[in-house]
Nucleic acid binder design. Structure first.
Lengths: 354, 354
DNA sequence: GCTAGTCTCTGGATCGATACAGAAACTGGA
DNA sequence: TCCAGTTTCTGTATCGATCCAGAGACTAGC
């Protein structure tokens, strides 16, 4: 059994409080006594105050929870998420705060429990879709939190850091429309829950539950509406996951159809790379036969010449951490919208007349 | 103030224990009463048992600490580390365990404190170099831990998952030697602490403090010794960090020298990519003018055709988590050495006669 | 009707620390 | 010499739960 604070107190012949002070408040006791306490503590093998007990008494923990509404391991699979975490961890490190990565069991009730059981001072919720339940659970605990997107209408997060999804999407779609493309497909991950890969019929963008996806699709639609292409004329493709094979699978049917689109606008770079994979497989390349765009500007986008929207990933993480760790006095400052940039590379080009 | 368990007990008119049981041991009370308790709990806004208090009483936390001996954000910058974390998190998720990423302040004493203050049930120590202090601090707390490398002679970790660094390095160096290369440079990150970038004179590999680096350099040396190239004939280059620019900077002088090496063996893919960057800058490419090898086989290595040693990153993480979360009965099973593979691509080729 | 056995529920002890009010000793100045 | 002020240390209450021995009520079997 590891010795406790009491054991040290007994060994030195002082009170528990004094030993506690030796660790947490050096100014509350003489240097000599403190020295003596620390030495006997080491001698009897006392490892320092128990972190859990300390947290309980103090009422705060010194760590913030990071919530991924999908599987936790997704965080390390998606390049954008990784960069976000890099920013988050840098800022957290500056504050001496640790990050608790909370596992998310598939079952809803258990996932909620995971949120309830996390010993943290606040949460950073990455990519909340409809998962208002997570926010609810956090609110029920009375803990502060930040989300990585402006909240869905109705729910209001006090603090968030996001981008203007719709405007950014409109920008890149306008670029594609400007190149003359009119027969286009929009590609997103899980447009509707439990959907097979491939085209989806939606009466409107409002049907899409995931707010980020909805925002981006709406932006794409805006730009095409401006050149006379209406929503029903756009093909919406759903991929079974935010990864390259899923994207390749989702576009496969369309690419092989007699009347393929001239451009595919993807809701993430990873999906766009999957489309390029599908093209490579067919011995075609981006831009020449099909224009492809992504979203996020991950490192690989530059390598393959993907036209995309850049958003500051590390910065997003950094700001998220700071909103949480020292909240701005002015509540309005808790709502941060980061700028985005259209990055035109070689994966988009003028529409080919066939 | 958030209501406590006691408040719920009072509201329902039962004892604290019963409310506790309603959450943690449903079989200990009638379904009807449990229902009633849960309902009033929700009604008065009780968010469920306080995780910290629960941990204190139960004596375990449900999370494991992940320790990076360098900055925490390094974890998200190094592709190999990211994949390791992916594996770790997948396994942790299966066990319902969360991961606590502990920040590492630069100052030694503070870093030790960070280890002492982490509320965790065990630690996964990534890439321990000479930082025996971390292991010491963990031992002092009496917590179990895993390291990602076989321990340095002397210190003994009960559980570790690593690779045979020396043998793997010997393998890839033998490939390079087999191609006829004799004038070669070995590139590593921070060969000695606080070293400027560039060539280092070492009387032997034993001088290198970081065990992983030492192991790899020793393996390289082994293979060249076998073809008659002795240690003093090998150039050792030190980079100021495990990143591409640092590697490019470290080799710059040598590449521009009148008598450049015909091959560079790097201790990581990231460093090797930096060398390729330096070559690109000089309008030369790998293999034609200079053979380059890496270590780890990160995703980008395949893209640029880097010859390297593959080690199973996700698997390493997964096993680390499992060694920690359900330790094998047989202590010998706590020592895992993973297999490695030599992956020959286009960045290595026969030595050019000039 | 009585004993044994099961189901429910309770109360007090406990996990390991920190906060805070106040006691004791010491310092200095008038 | 005495009082105010500071420094140093102590003791008790508390953070919010879980554990465990045991009290009552209830069922079963003989």
């Amino acid at each position: 059994m590891k010795p406790t604070l009491q054991a040290v107190a007994d060994a030195v012949g002082v009170s528990r409080s004094t030993v506690s002070n030796a660790y947490a408040r050096p100014d509350q006791l003489s240097a000599a006594l403190r020295q003596r306490i620390l030495e006997t503590a080491k001698a009897i093998g006392y490892p320092g105050p128990n972190p859990t007990a300390r947290s309980l008494r103090r009422g705060f923990v010194g760590s913030i929870g990071v919530l991924f509404t999908s599987q936790l391991s997704y965080a390390f699979t998606d390049p954008f998420a990784v960069r976000f975490l890099a920013g988050l961890s840098t800022a957290a490190e500056r504050h001496g705060t640790s990050l608790l990565l909370v596992p998310m069991p598939g079952a809803h009730a258990e996932a909620r429990q995971a949120v309830e059981n996390a010993a943290v001072d606040g949460f950073c919720v990455y990519c909340v879709g409809d998962e208002e339940w997570a926010v609810d659970a956090i609110r029920a605990r009375g803990l502060p939190f930040v989300t990585t997107a402006a909240p869905v209408d109705g729910g209001h997060a006090e603090r968030y850091v996001g981008i203007d999804e719709r405007a950014a999407a409109r920008g890149i779609a306008a670029h594609v429309a400007g190149l003359g493309h009119r027969r286009v497909a929009l590609l997103a991950d899980a447009v509707l829950p439990n959907l097979p890969a491939g085209p989806v019929r939606l009466s409107g963008v409002d049907e899409v539950p995931h707010p980020t996806t909805r925002g981006r699709l709406a932006g794409f639609a805006d730009a095409f509406a401006a050149v006379g292409v209406t929503w029903p004329e756009l093909t919406v493709l759903s991929a079974a996951g935010n990864n390259r094979p899923a994207a390749a699978a989702a576009v496969a049917g369309l690419l092989d159809s007699p009347d393929p689109p001239t451009a595919v606008l993807a809701c993430s770079d990873v999906l766009a790379l999957g489309v390029l994979d599908a093209l490579t497989e067919r011995a075609a390349s981006g831009a020449s036969s099909l224009s492809v765009t992504g979203f996020d500007d991950i490192a690989e986008a530059a390598a393959v010449g993907l036209t995309t929207v850049r958003q500051p990933a590390e910065e997003k993480g950094r700001i998220a951490a700071e909103l949480l760790l020292d909240p701005p006095a002015d509540p309005a400052a808790g709502h941060v919208l980061l700028p985005t940039t259209l990055v035109v590379r070689t994966s988009t080009g003028p529409v080919q007349r066939s």
